[in-house]
Design a protein around this nucleic acid. Structure first.
Length: 865
DNA sequence: ACTCTGCTGAGAGGA
């Protein structure tokens, strides 16, 4: 059965309903196409096989030659070379082809590679079988040593060329300039190249980077100008700029490769937090729903524990967490990349992963095998980003519309007014909105191209999007709702759900909020009533609102078939420009929502940042007459708001409501007896004391390098004293947040809070994680005390802005003013706080001389006045 | 000089 199943799964690639939908195939065509292969297949089976269930296991990757691929089928074959020679039995790779028998060198080469892969786990078969199912032709491909070395050499050459994509030149001042590297000269084959899907990109690259010297009459001399005739110099410059950014980021951030699995031991990789070593399988289970997005089978999960002989760290402290992608291999290096999957559950002693291969369910074969689970980061979104850039260059109306708006920065157009009947329809949704929110929505209705909605902190971005989506739906317009993160998408959807709006959510189930799962496409389409292309199309078309992540747009079949009236991108100022393009290919106008004064897209390498890679599409399109500010905020009281108005918003931020402006910390100070003065000041409920800075410059609160991170124990102690006081004075723990720019400090604080105030509900997190959220009370621990070796992190005004705009009533800042003055952004803030301390809200608390007292009390911190 | 979310992929064929 295994053999037959494997063979039929080959056909399944064509018969899976979503795929047919994606390729817009009629049901019958597919069935006819599939059924024509069945007779020759059955004939072949009866002639050559006695059906027995061999394991059917085929390697996914190979160690000796560094190959990776999936073999259709391995068969145990009895071979009789000549009449004289004895029968030989060996396991061979079998490659199925549904087309006409060509026995082309490509096909033979593929079998050669598979045979090489087999040789890593079994005796080298040195041959393989090609089976063409159209007429049932079969041929044994004999693998010659020279074709092996030929293929490996070819691969190595290509790998070398691709690894030199970026070249650098360093000038006398040590400044680096990056250049795109060139590839080997193009082949001269008009027939192949004219139909190649990469012709356009290849042409741009040849024209702008490689500039090969071609002989006269070379196919490319004609094809290149044809392929890029619709592009001008500006288009090319944009394209090349972003390709360079992506290349530099890839090079400098040092992407981890799969090869590290066979170059580094499991225990070594575990130290780096990227691997669980010495694992054994303890259980397996079939029928795992989460596997659906990548598995045609029933979905298999495997549970591992440590091998009894190995006393490693608790599994959930190593660094792998739920949802991480992993590769499964054996410790001895015999089974490389046996399967890939993701972590479903992880505890101190057990880890459960969902794998892409159902046959691993039969775990008896592996009972003596020690496994390792490596984080699978080798895959990156880069491929998708390159594709989006190339799509932007396409000679399509959509491509040229987007190029005009984005690259040429053509002014977006608007209708002059919104019709009366339209206004009447949306009246009730408009009612609870404030003026800037209404203006922004009206502009979206009038826009022909795009609108940017700049949502300052606490100004009701989500409510505005919710209202906008409802209005668009009411007007009969379809909406593609996206954001960079799944959590931001679900944030909006949770509100829409509450209002009874009908929508469809696409994306991996593991990433989707539990209460949104019932709206998830995979779950809804699994209903037995959706069993044909028509039913599936009807299902997808019945939703006017479709929501997913920006990158989730890339591969879903819906987007090959559908276009939307309006696309909304939330968090748009945090989305990499090429990633933001994805959803825009599928809409007639778009709305970007964000705030460029808050955090920019994550770019790992400083080099790529210096090229401008962190410029979001939001920033690129800002100031083109289509930006509308939401400036009425409902979060911070006037004192806290004033701080970020000084720092970044230049007075534009206004309180949306007088009660917001005057809100103060609700604290029962009568419960706090003989408090030192600095604590009294820090926790004062008076509005003029809403922002407090606790300066640690006079006490020994020094930053500590902790592996890759930074932490500051003394600052953490001060945070904890304040938290305890707050809890004592009946301030709800869930209304209090602690923020630090540094992960290590966050971890330290989390441990301490967990130990001392386990049930209080105080949330400790990084600045980055707190974006988009707020708490009544926020305590910020700045950590840094050194004045040299200043870090990148605090240099970013946007990160500081986020830290300062999370608090509603009380913002307590803890840091060393001498060290923090080194930062250009912080210096004016600090001096302003110091200057105005008498007139407004800066409370300067000196802890001079208190450190000795701490030491005397046996290491226990006891800060008194 | 430390901040972090995305994405399964490999191969299906047609001259």
């Amino acid at each position: 059965m295994m053999i037959i199943n494997s063979i039929f799964s080959e056909f399944l690639k064509y018969s899976v309903t979503p795929l047919r939908y994606k390729q817009n195939l009629a049901e019958q065509t597919v069935m006819e196409e599939v059924s024509q292969y069945i007779p020759s297949l059955m004939a072949w089976l009866s002639k050559h096989t006695c059906v027995s269930d061999s394991s059917g296991r085929s390697p996914a990757a190979e160690k000796k030659f560094g190959l990776k691929g999936k073999i259709d089928l391995t068969v145990k074959a009895q071979l009789r070379k000549t009449k004289a020679s004895r029968e030989e039995v060996k396991v061979l790779p079998l490659e199925l082809k549904t087309g006409k028998a060509s026995f082309s060198s490509e096909h033979k080469g593929q079998v050669t590679l598979y045979s090489m892969m087999c040789s890593d786990r079994r005796p080298d078969p040195q041959e393989g079988i090609l089976l063409y199912l159209k007429h049932g032709e079969m041929e044994t491909v004999t693998v010659k040593p020279e074709s092996k070395s030929g293929l490996v050499q070819l691969r190595n050459r290509l790998a070398r060329d691709l690894s030199r994509q970026v070249t650098t030149e360093t000038d006398e001042n040590g400044r680096k300039t990056y250049f795109l590297g060139s590839l080997p000269p193009p082949i001269n084959n008009e027939r192949a190249c004219s139909k190649c899907s990469h012709l356009q990109t290849c042409s741009i690259y040849q024209r702008s980077v490689e500039k090969p010297e071609l002989p006269p009459n070379h196919a490319m001399s004609k094809l290149v100008p044809e392929a890029m005739g619709h592009l001008d110099g500006e288009d090319l410059a944009y394209f090349l700029h972003w390709i360079l950014c992506l290349d530099v980021e890839g090079k400098e951030s040092g992407r981890r490769q799969l090869s590290s699995i066979w170059c580094t031991s499991g225990q070594q990789r575990e130290k780096e937090g990227d691997c669980l070593s010495n694992m054994v399988i303890t259980a397996s289970e079939l029928g795992i729903p989460e596997s659906q997005s990548f598995n045609d089978g029933k979905g298999c999960s495997l549970t591992f524990s440590r091998h009894p002989s190995y006393a490693g760290a608790a599994l959930n402290t190593v660094g792998l967490t739920t949802g991480d992608m992993v590769v499964l291999s054996s410790e001895d290096g015999h089974l490389i990349a046996l399967a890939t999957g993701f972590v479903r559950n992880i505890s101190a002693t057990l880890v459960e992963i969902v794998v892409d291969r159902d046959y691993l369910h039969k775990t008896s074969e592996y009972k003596d095998v020690k496994f390792r689970l490596d984080r699978n980061d080798s895959f990156s979104t880069a491929g998708y980003l390159y594709t989006s850039l190339s799509k932007l260059m396409d000679p399509t109306p959509q491509g040229s519309w987007l190029r005009n708006l984005i690259i040429k920065r053509q002014a977006p157009e608007f209708e002059l007014k919104v019709s009366k009947s339209c206004l009447y329809k949306v009246k009730s949704i408009f009612k609870p909105l404030n003026k800037p929110q209404r203006t922004a929505i009206l502009k979206v209705l009038m826009a022909k191209d795009y609108v940017l909605i700049k949502g300052f902190p606490g100004t009701g971005k989500t409510s505005t999007i919710v209202a906008l989506v409802k209005i668009l739906q009411l007007l009969g317009l379809s909406v593609l709702l996206t954001s960079y993160t799944h959590s931001a998408v679900d944030n909006i959807l949770l509100k829409l759900k509450k209002e009874g709006v009908h929508f469809l959510r696409l994306g991996r189930q593991g990433r989707i909020h539990p209460s949104i799962l019932p709206h998830c496409a995979e779950i809804l389409t699994s209903s037995p009533s959706i069993n044909s292309v028509q039913a599936l199309r009807k299902f997808y078309d019945s939703y006017s609102i479709v929501a997913t992540s920006c990158l989730g747009v890339s591969n879903h079949p819906v987007f090959q078939q559908r276009s939307f009236d309006v696309c909304v991108v939330d968090e748009a100022s945090q989305v990499l420009q090429p990633a933001c393009l994805g959803p825009l290919f599928h809409c007639r106008k778009f709305v970007l929502v964000g705030d460029p004064k808050q955090l920019p897209p994550v770019v790992q390498s400083k080099e790529a940042r210096s090229l401008g890679m962190d410029e979001s599409l939001f920033v690129k399109l800002d100031n083109r007459g289509a930006t509308y500010d939401l400036n009425l905020q409902y979060r911070m009281n006037r004192v806290i708001m004033e701080l970020s108005n000084r720092l970044v918003y230049e007075g534009q931020l206004l309180c949306g409501d007088p009660s917001v402006a005057e809100q103060c910390l609700q604290i029962d100070t009568s419960l706090l007896s003989d408090q030192p003065k600095w604590q009294k000041a820090a926790l004062s409920p008076k509005i003029q004391n809403s922002v407090v800075f606790i300066d640690t410059q006079k006490i020994a609160a020094t930053e500590i390098q902790d592996g890759k991170g930074l932490k500051n124990k003394m600052e953490a102690d001060i945070v904890l004293i304040l938290l305890k006081q707050l809890m004592k004075a009946k301030v709800g723990g869930e209304t209090v947040g602690v923020i630090s720019p540094y992960r290590s400090q966050v971890q330290l604080l989390q441990q301490m809070v967990h130990a001392c105030l386990p049930l209080a509900g105080v949330e400790v997190n990084t600045v980055d994680q707190y974006q988009g959220r707020d708490k009544s009370v926020i305590i910020v621990s700045f950590v840094r005390t050194e004045t040299d070796n200043v870090g990148e992190l605090l240099k970013d005004l946007r990160r500081l802005n986020v830290a300062l705009t999370r608090a509603r009533c009380k913002l307590i800042l803890i840091g060393n003013t001498v060290a923090l003055k080194v930062y250009d952004n912080l210096a004016p803030l600090l001096s302003w706080l110091q200057e105005t301390q008498n007139v407004s809200f800066y409370v300067f608390v000196s802890l001079l001389g208190k450190f000795d007292q701490c030491k005397n009390s046996g290491g226990k911190l006891r800060l008194s006045d």
